[in-house]
Amino acid sequence: MDVDFTKPAGIQRKQYRDFTDQINPKPNVLVNAIWAFVVGGIICTVGQGFLNAFLAAGLPVLESGAMTAVVLIFIAAFLTGLGVFDDIAKYAGAGVIVPITGFANAMVAPAMEARNEGLVLGVGARLFTIAGPVLVFGIVAAWLTGLLYFLFR
């Protein structure tokens, strides 16, 4: 007996939750973590390569960092446009979503979809649907950190 339908609704729900826990497939966390580590590592290595190249070309440290971010954003946006990014992310998961590449993808993907709803109310309005919360809480966290630094330095 998985769920006893003579029991009150609360107990039925609890029994059903236990039943679904038995049946639902479990993700393979280890495999996912290895994929994320390897792909995330590759992206960081590629980024470091660009950084070194910009430094070697004579760009100052700050500008080199910014240029590296620009290049990675371009690559991620380009792969999103080609429809490849989501195929990579299927395996790489957090490895490709957590670095700046994920942020670029989160901006381009909704923009591509919204283009037939117009430039302003479509693309303009939808551009930040995924990235918006990241920005909001990123800015809030930065502001709080700054405040703590100001008070306790």
Partner: peptide, 11 residues
């Protein structure tokens, strides 16, 4: 999500 969004679908 947008179709080109890089997400892992639940099993």
């Amino acid at each position: 999500f947008p179709t080109e969004q890089g997400v892992q679908r639940s099993l």
